[in-house]
Nucleic acid binder design. Structure first.
Lengths: 213, 213
DNA sequence: GTCTATAGGCGGATAGAC
DNA sequence: GTCTATCCGCCTATAGAC
């Protein structure tokens, strides 16, 4: 009994150190990028020694892969922000505006998310598998949800649901990249609501309702 | 006279070495990213000694900045590929299809361009000025050309020309990022022509012509 | 201007005590 | 499992000869 307790507490301690290492790694990799990140600084940030880091993760690449896979599965999975499936009910003009607003709000406020996108895109040539993990866990689920919603609203007359979803998300992601990631707000100014209004107008204006105009 | 000749030939030699250094730096930075790039390898690739590199450029950051600024002004300025201003004449469905096809072809075939985008986006947090140089020289000119064209075609009924241009370019750039940069072709499959067809349909289908349908 | 040679530091990774 | 101490290589940047 006593031995079990000690084993458990040891294991729990070890598990917590692993968590701490991943947290330290997140700070370091998001701030410095992969190559410039230092295993020394990760260990310090985690409050453990460098040898402990290497006892939990084989090497730097391994730690980086584990971190990114954790982030795409947990922290940054929901590209639409904090929306549950209940938010995907109601009129297109309202639901789509809410989706767009949430996406842009999240990207605008969450500097960590911007750094995460920078990291995934910047390393996608050297870590193609991690880029694909991002697609599978972040983009694909958002895309599927939006497609499902668009297909369920029969008042929308869409020539191609999947392409429409790509246009919607693509326009917003490109906006996020230009305005927030690449600091282009002053060079190519565009009001957030002006973009959203006209994007929604373009998608919804061919609804069956307008036959009664 | 003789001295002048020697001075000229010396200067020309120096200028050529500078070019060679920038070419070597391009290969190295595009392949490795900023932090993992090595000044040793840049010197070797350029066929000069490391000291010569440092005599032409203050330090690594300086060389990187000079390279990126050169690339946005020369090599990667035209996001629409090899299209001259003459290509911006004719019917929207034809011109826009040509533009989209050129953009996607260029991104699909030119691995250097993909690596350049990865580099600019990946380093945009630590080199914001270079990201802005990219916006000013690449995105802004493409955007301006497209806006100018869209505004000139009065048969198009667009609620907002600038937003329409953003939707067009944003959809295509997002497609390039997902399919080509992040290797998502197998995870979120989408035929190139299917995207282009329906994107153009969405933009052009409200043209005045359809009143005669 | 260009080279060779080298300084000086920080990088990733490990050995061995506890 | 975790630590301290250390190895060794590659990094950026420079000194000094030509």
């Amino acid at each position: 009994m006593k031995r079990t307790k000690i084993q458990n507490s040891d294991r729990e301690l070890s598990v917590e150190k692993k968590k701490a290492i991943l947290e330290g790694a997140m700070k370091e990799f998001l701030a410095q990028g992969y190559a410039a990140a230092s295993m020394d600084r990760i260990a310090t940030a985690a409050g453990v020694s460098k040898a402990t880091v290497y006892s939990h993760f084989q090497d730097k690449e391994n730690l980086f892969s584990a971190l990114v896979e954790q982030l795409v599965q947990k922290k940054f999975q929901n590209i639409f922000g904090c929306m549950d499936s209940q938010a995907f009910q109601g009129e297109p003009t309202i639901v789509l505006r809410q989706l767009a607003t949430n996406m842009l709000n999240m990207a605008h406020c969450d500097e960590q998310f911007l750094n995460f996108m920078r990291l995934v895109i910047g390393e996608s040539g050297r870590f193609p598998v991690l880029a694909q993990a991002f697609i599978s866990n972040v983009e694909k689920s958002a895309f599927a949800k939006l497609c499902h919603y668009l297909a369920s609203r029969h008042e929308l007359v869409l020539s191609d649901v999947e392409v429409t979803a790509r246009i919607f998300i693509g326009t917003l992601v490109h906006f996020i990249i230009i305005q927030y990631m690449l600091h282009g707000g002053d060079i190519l100014p565009m009001e957030r609501d002006r973009l959203i209004d006209n994007l929604i107008k373009l998608i919804c204006d061919r609804s069956k309702d307008r036959e009664s105009w």
